[in-house]
Design a protein around this nucleic acid. Structure first.
Length: 938
RNA sequence: GCGGGUGUGGUGAAAUUGGUAGACACGCCAGACUUAGGAUCUGGUGCCGUGAGGCAUGGGGGUUCGAGUCCCUCCACCCGCACCA
């Protein structure tokens, strides 16, 4: 009988559903294990081969853990709120709820074809009211909490109110507090709430009347329509994630993420220690009587290097700095205004990426607080208002950007580090001994830092300061397709709904155009936005709201009393293995880590890190194929006939390079018939200039996307080769963590492997008189030979190690080696094959189930006992040693496994080849590493 | 600009701790079986060289008996940067 993978896979997928094979219960005598994938956004494009990479890896691990005796939670759901559905609605009028429902159905269908072991009874969808009810409730918990700096944890806001009412603060007494109106109280409370409202800058597009995401803005104009975009201040909601900065840093020590991932989070948090220093400003002006006067005020700078204070040659402030207005001099006014207008059109990223130095002098000077030196104050886009104090003291001899700025604008440079500074580039060292530095002279810089700060504090002109690059997280979006805020505004003061009023459902809308003043579409729905108590908040929560806590809901998906019961969350605890892409390195992971910490502080869960171990799957890129059409004709020229240069040419004629669907190309050879029928046969009459008999396509690696025709649909591969082949091929491509372009070429090898495995159980079918005869089962119950056992146990060890360390590509290779060797040995023995099937079950579940039953076993192979490695079967008695002379391999020799250097030396030196290479010389040294190698140094 | 990552045959890759570079596959070449093959099987396949041998892990330098692996330096490409999820 042949390997009829389509029938087998359908059979077992139905079996799994009927027998609830993947149903998971919250009570079990087995130890728990929680394996989670980052859930997908159900895009309209459906699943492509990039999505399942991580899912297959986690599925393998889940099945493996289950076989090893764990109660494994391995759920799946959908991150179904988001911008694309809304964009699509704007374009087509289709309601996001409708498209989302459809897309989820497609995704699920596609996922199920690959044979994942999800317990769909636990599915969550962030856009369903039954789910976002709890997202809203957790928002209320954040809103009704503050971060207690003494205890370094979240506490109910009522504790703070209590404190204000009884003890007051340095800003007000308890009596004053009690006399405050509710609105006045709210102003103070808002400064502490973990979810709070404040003003922030957004990308505002006047023409579209809406706020835009950064990637909707290209070169200062909107992607849609190319309208100008400026920064605008608007009321926004924020999460006070900065309060958790230190705990987010400390928590990294306790989790098993890659070093690079931790590094990225640390950089994002960007903790630095330094000082804030007050610089007095001197701005000359003429008073009414035309006398020269000096205006004076203070600008605070933040620096991590207060030791370089005597090397400050100028100050730079951000174009948005609040002091700009007051310090510009009459003469410079025009230049400054022009410069600021230019900066307004630029994004933060452009401003930092810019290599051309730009800036403008304000006309004012700052006074070095220690020595009274007058330094010019400049404005430049490389200083960002959101970081530090939005003003820096520039030390050109020690900072590269400051140095270039000084050179560019001819600002004299003070050298405070002697010959550590060569005048050609800045030197950021901390090891130099300070010169020209007043009371710091003679000190090594790193020691001078503390001394300088102490002096600043002593003189009251500055203070020690810890700074974070991380900002509080913007938590509102002027959009429709997201969770509504359970907030009502009255006369500028917000009131929260109570938990019992949730969910606050998203009202149905017909149109998605923005509301007045850049508000979200919800502002247009009069009977929803207006309530007797006041106006509802019109913005919605961002995509990461629902995804910040979804891993908790899977534990207890049907609970309608709480977002998760303490019993369920205590049992499942944090996620043991989390798989997803590095693109979430900072955003999603930091937000869910913060939410987890808050919920822990408030006592709702018993752990404060959500993910114990994180594995990042690489990105699957597309491998695009191109055809070349002679400009203005319908004739296509094969790739290698074209000369490439500034443009493509064929016999002096210009050639246009065009994407062609990668699925119509076998390797590099275009299927011309398919191509003619492509896109309703628009190339029906095309002519081809071939090389040999073939049309060869061009190749390039690009992002996988529909518009580049380089997407490959897993459904097609499952139909053609089967899910088991597809799963194993995705793993065989290379390490899970590595990014790589998809290429279907090569899948045959894995498919052949499964067919070869099949032939260990069934004899081949054959044709006689035009009729196919079925092969019969050929497995036997004979006892295995030591050689066969050796193959098996070698494989058990390898698969176990490789699965544990996520080296699935080498595991697949080990299966191939195993089956090749068993085939060579003509081993059809149940005793051996049975165990191979159990090992294989996580990787190729359908064929493993089928053959497991062919061998006469009942039920699912997942309930079998995992084979145990026995080293007795794999012991070798001798070892083939590589023998090198001067590090170059010259021969190999066999020695007993226990042979020592003294046993080996005479034999090696007597060897013919060794003799030849020694050329009669005496060896200087013989290096013998037991079980590794032999090297003779001459 | 800042941060992170990757560079090994024609291709995907392997080499887990500094110890036989290229396992396992794809592709290609030769052959067997077959009415037929997009089935199956056998052998070969890093590069140069008839050969002995030499050269090879992005380039250059270093440490070491020994480097794909460690150190320095340069180059190329990919990803992220706060309203895409």
């Amino acid at each position: 009988m042949d390997y009829k993978f389509r029938e087998i896979e359908e059979k077992w997928q139905n079996y799994w559903i009927e027998n609830k094979t993947y149903k998971v219960y919250n009570n079990s005598s087995k130890p728990k294990f929680y394996v989670l994938d980052m859930f997908p956004y159900p895009s309209g494009a459906g699943l492509h081969v990039g999505h399942p990479l991580g899912y297959i890896a986690s599925d393998i691990y889940s099945r493996y853990k289950r076989l090893k005796g764990f109660n494994v939670l391995h759920p799946m759901g959908f991150d179904s709120f988001g911008l694309p559905a809304e964009q699509y609605a704007i374009e087509t009028g289709m309601h996001p709820a409708e498209t989302t429902k459809k897309n989820i159905a497609t995704f699920k269908k596609q996922l199920n074809k690959i044979g994942f072991c999800y317990d769909w009874d636990r599915e969550v969808q962030t856009s369903s009211p039954a789910y976002y009810k709890w997202t809203q409730e957790i928002f209320l918990k954040l809103y009704n909490s503050y971060f207690c700096n003494t205890q370094q944890k979240a506490r109910p806001i009522t504790d703070l109110i209590e404190k204000y009412a009884t003890k007051g603060t340095k800003h007000f007494s308890s009596n004053q507090w009690n006399a405050f109106t509710d609105a006045e109280k709210e102003v103070w409370l808002m400064k502490r709430r973990l979810a709070f409202s404040s003003y922030g800058e957004v990308n505002w597009c006047e023409a579209l009347g809406t706020v835009l995401a950064n990637d909707e803005v290209v070169n200062g104009v909107s992607e849609r329509g190319g309208h100008p975009v400026i920064k605008k201040k608007m009321r926004q909601w924020y999460l006070r994630i900065t309060a958790y900065a230190d705990r987010l840093l400390q928590g990294l020590e306790t989790v098993d993420f890659s070093d690079s991932m931790k590094e990225m989070q640390r950089n994002w948090i960007g903790k630095s220690e330094g000082a804030e220093i007050n610089f007095k400003i001197s701005k000359p002006f003429k008073d009414d009587t035309n006398n020269n006067k000096e205006f004076s005020d203070v600008i605070k700078v933040y620096t991590t290097r207060p030791d370089t204070i005597f090397g400050v040659d100028f100050m730079v402030i951000a174009p948005e700095h609040e002091m700009v207005e007051t310090i510009i001099s009459e003469e410079q006014k025009l230049y400054v205004e022009k410069y600021i207008a230019y900066v307004k059109s630029r994004s933060d990223r452009e401003r930092q990426a810019e290599k051309n130095i730009s800036g403008v002098f304000t006309g004012s000077y700052a006074i070095n607080p220690f020595d009274g030196k007058k330094i010019p104050i400049w404005i430049s886009e490389y200083v960002l208002i959101g970081y530090g104090t939005g003003a820096i003291m520039a030390v050109p001899c020690g900072d590269e950007r400051d140095f270039k700025f000084a050179k560019h604008f001819n600002i004299p440079i003070t050298n405070i580090i002697g010959n550590h500074f060569n005048g050609l580039e800045a030197n950021p060292t901390k090891e130099a001994t300070l010169e020209n530095s007043n009371f710091l002279n003679g000190l090594v810089m790193k020691d001078a830092i503390t001394i300088a700060i102490n002096k600043l504090e002593e003189l009251g002109i500055g203070k020690r300061k810890v700074n974070y690059k991380m900002r509080d997280a913007g938590f509102s979006r002027q959009r429709y397709w997201g969770e509504p805020f359970p907030i009502i505004w009255k006369e500028g003061t917000p009131t929260a709904l109570s938990a019992s009023q949730l969910p606050l459902e998203l009202p149905h809308v017909e149109k998605y155009s923005p509301g007045p003043e850049g508000e979200g579409p919800l502002a247009n729905i009069q009977n929803w936005i207006n309530t007797p108590e006041g106006k509802r908040e019109s913005s919605t929560m961002p995509g990461y709201a629902g995804s910040s806590w979804y891993f908790l809901r899977y534990m207890d998906p049907e609970n309608n009393q709480e977002f998760v019961s303490r019993t369920a969350s205590d049992y499942w605890n944090s996620v043991d293995l989390y798989i997803g892409g590095t693109e979430h390195a900072v955003g999603h992971l930091l937000y869910s880590r913060m939410w987890t910490k808050v919920l822990y502080d408030l006592g709702y869960i018993g752990f404060d890190e959500p993910f114990k171990r994180l594995v990042n799957q690489g990105m699957i890129q597309g491998s695009s194929r191109f055809v070349y059409r002679i400009n203005g004709t319908n004739t296509y020229v094969s790739k290698n006939l074209i000369s490439e240069g500034d443009q493509y040419l064929y016999q002096e004629k210009k050639v246009d390079k065009m994407h062609v669907d990668v699925n119509m190309v076998d390797g590099l050879e275009l299927n011309i018939e398919q191509f003619k029928q492509w896109r309703n046969g628009e190339n029906n009459n095309a002519e081809f200039i071939l090389e040999g008999e073939k049309y060869i396509c061009g190749v390039e690696v690009e992002k996988m996307s529909k518009s580049k025709y380089n997407t490959v649909n897993p459904d097609d591969l499952c139909v053609q080769y089967g899910a088991d082949t597809f799963r194993m091929y995705e793993m065989f491509l290379g390490p899970v963590e590595q990014s790589k372009p998809w290429d279907t070429k090569g899948i045959e090898g894995v498919h052949r492997f499964l067919k070869k495995l099949w032939r260990l159980f069934y004899s081949e079918s054959s044709f006689s008189n035009g009729i196919q005869t079925n092969g019969n089962t050929i497995f036997t119950k004979d006892a295995a030979t030591s050689e066969e056992l050796k193959v098996l146990h070698k494989t058990i060890k390898k698969i176990d190690e490789d699965t544990e360390r996520f080296s699935y590509n080498t595991a697949v290779s080990a299966f191939m080696v195993c089956v090749n060797e068993l085939a060579d040995l003509k081993c059809f023995k149940k005793e051996i094959l049975e165990n191979v099937l159990i090992l294989l079950a996580p990787y190729a579940p359908h064929i493993a189930e089928e053959l497991w039953n062919v061998l006469g076993n009942e039920g699912s192979v997942l309930d079998a006992a995992y084979p145990i490695y026995n080293s007795n079967y794999t012991i070798e008695s001798s070892k083939e040693y590589p023998v090198s002379i001067n590090g170059k391999l010259r021969t190999t020799m066999h020695f007993d496994i226990n042979a020592e250097q003294k046993d080996v030396e005479p034999v090696v030196l007597a060897n013919e080849i060794v003799q030849k290479w020694l050329e009669g010389k005496n060896p200087k040294k013989i290096i013998f590493v037991k079980n590794k190698m032999i090297n003779i140094v001459v």
